[in-house]
Design a protein around this nucleic acid. Structure first.
Length: 144
RNA sequence: ACCAAGGGCUACUCCAUCGCCUGCACCGCCUCCUUUGGGGGUAGGGUGGGAGGAAAGUCCGGACAACGUAGAGCGCCGCACCACCUAACGGGUGGGACUUCGACCUCGGUCGGAGGACAGAGAGUGUCACAGAAAAUUACCGCCAUUCGAUUUCGGAUUUCGGAAUGCGGACGAUUUGAUUUCGGAUUUCGGAUUGCGGAUUUCGGAUUGGGAGGGCUGCUAGCUUGGGAAGUGAUUGGGGCAUCGAGUGUUUCCACGGCCUCCAAUCCGCAAUCCGCAAUCCGAAAUCGAAUGGUAAGGGUGAAAACGUGCGGUAAGAGCGCACGGCGCUGGCUGGCAACAGCUGGGGCGGAUAAACCUUGCGGGUUGAAAUGUCAUGUACAUCGGUGAUGUCCCGGCGCUUGCGCCGGGGCGGGAGGGCUGCUCGCCCGAGCCGAGGGGUAGGCAGCUAGAGGCCGUCCGUGAGGGCGGUCCCAGAUAAAUGAUGGAGACCUUACUUGCGUGGGGUUACAGAAUCCGGCUUAUUGGCCCUUGGUGCAU
RNA sequence: GGUCCCGUAGUUCAACGGAUAGAAUGGAAGUUUCCUAAACUUUAGAUAUGGGUUCGAUUCCCGUCGGGACUA
């Protein structure tokens, strides 16, 4: 039975890490989403992945619209994160992930859910590539 | 019932599954003391709660917190009809005055709705474009009075006096006529100022010009040069006849020409008279023009706004100068009202607008805001550069020694950049560092943090905002920031088909997301329900 | 969360409360040129928005809308 929870430990809150994501992290996009991610040392009792979502104020002036999209994306992560957790079980890294909503208008939940599934699949594939690297601790595998 | 306006309430409901934030230690689990029990922890289960009427804008007011608060003066900001409500307010309730709209009628009152930052312009300063005489206690034109000057008109006086004639008008008489006319004029009356000048007319005189088939006389050394003379120059009739040798000679001859006189005509001038016109001087009156002084604010077509309005009186002209009616606002009194204010009445007035211009008066305001503030942890660097700044003297003690100096310590006085008194100044206090640049570190947690000017129900007081009392309930506290997603049912809305019942599709909506908490205001907004007022229609 | 400031032609700026809101650039049309450029002439174009005060508002006051700055 997969865990469909989204506890506090699974949330990315550190301003520093988020700043680092935009500076040094990797990213790819699955419309209408875009993922920024990087690996960092696993803290004591930490979750395998820390996740957060952001919707730019530029595209959505209304706070209500922004909140709704963030909830939709968070729900999609919550219902699909087990697919990722299953694959990276036992990994000594903690992944910081941030999803940016890049579309200019809101979308049905089903479409966001589908995009999230595709994105997690892609992330897993890229993660495999990183794991195959001789120095997996590197956040930016520029050696390739 | 419908329509319009205003106000209030509400903000889809239920079920299932999967989640999120949070309170609780009931069960489970862990742990400690140690033993039938107690303490601590833990969110696996359980259970309670989980966005709004605006959570928004941050426009007001408070609570709360930190800092500050010897004194004096000056400033700054806000508010402004009255009373009340409230913790407080620029909010609210009720009332008053004003403006505006509507209805009614007794036609200037009543009733109702709406509106607003509704103290003071009669304390002072400023501003009021263009136009206009003038934009605020002044005066341009005009009107009036006085004085002066000029002009004109009129009247009077003077410019010597007197007389005569003529002319004109009137009266009278005669005559004539259709009527005017005409004639007479002795006497009487009135007027035309006088003088000078000019003109006209008449008379006289003179001059000039012209004319003549008139008459008579006559044929000439003038002139220029010069101050004057001398001297010089020098025009100087023509023809015929006769005389003569002849001529520039002679000739009472003729003709022409010229000159003079006379006559005639015309023109001009002068004198006199008369008449007419004009002018001068003096006095008086009137008018006009100009100037000065003063009075006045009636009128002056402008303007957004014009010096209370209309009428009568009054006056040199005018004026609230006086009176009547009306208006405005000041002030005293009486009545009603807590008051604003209203009504009646007396007095004395007529002062433009603007205070969302400065301002005055009254009242209020210490400053800063939860990124406040406290606390625990983590972590570095009193490092670097630039600018600027006082360190004097006296006393005491100690030490060193060149017995007077040096060093150290303490105290007094003076100086002192800068700082504090949280707007500024004075004043007071502190006082050896201060200011700036550019860097570095942390940006976790806990408290503040939600039991409150709290909600709901009942009752009483009050017109009402609201308040008292009683009962009952505990009702979000997040922090990259929870309150959601999916499915189903109901309800509602909308749309297509259908006479309709109904069926199918779509939507669940608008505005919008707590961030210390309250009370307001403002702004955004879908649908539903209710209330009040007005209008229309129907029924009674 | 809080405090403060600013909105004028397409752009950068002006404008005591006084009438047509001005200047420079940019745009358009024309003249000139074989054609451009330059030059010259002409022309269109604005007070963020809604109210209020005032005889009169870009200016003064209030409310909205938009933008910006500061604050640990």
């Amino acid at each position: 039975m997969p865990e469909f929870t989204f506890k506090k430990a699974e949330r990315l809150k550190s301003l520093k890490v988020i700043g680092g994501l935009f500076k040094d992290g990797q990213s790819f996009g699955v419309y209408p989403l875009r993922l920024f991610w990087s690996a960092q040392p696993m803290p004591e009792g930490g979750a395998p992945v820390q996740f957060t979502v952001s919707v730019p104020k530029k595209n959505f002036k209304s706070a209500v619209a922004r909140n709704r999209i963030k909830r939709q994306v968070r729900e999609a992560w919550r219902l699909n994160k087990h697919r990722l957790y299953r694959r990276i079980e036992g990994n000594e890294h903690q992944y910081a992930c941030m999803v940016l909503y890049v579309a200019k208008e809101d979308m049905p939940t089903a479409q966001i859910d589908k995009a999230m599934q595709t994105m997690i699949h892609l992330f897993y594939k890229k993660n495999i590539a990183v794991a195959a690297n001789p120095k997996p601790n590197e956040t930016a595998p520029s050696g390739n």
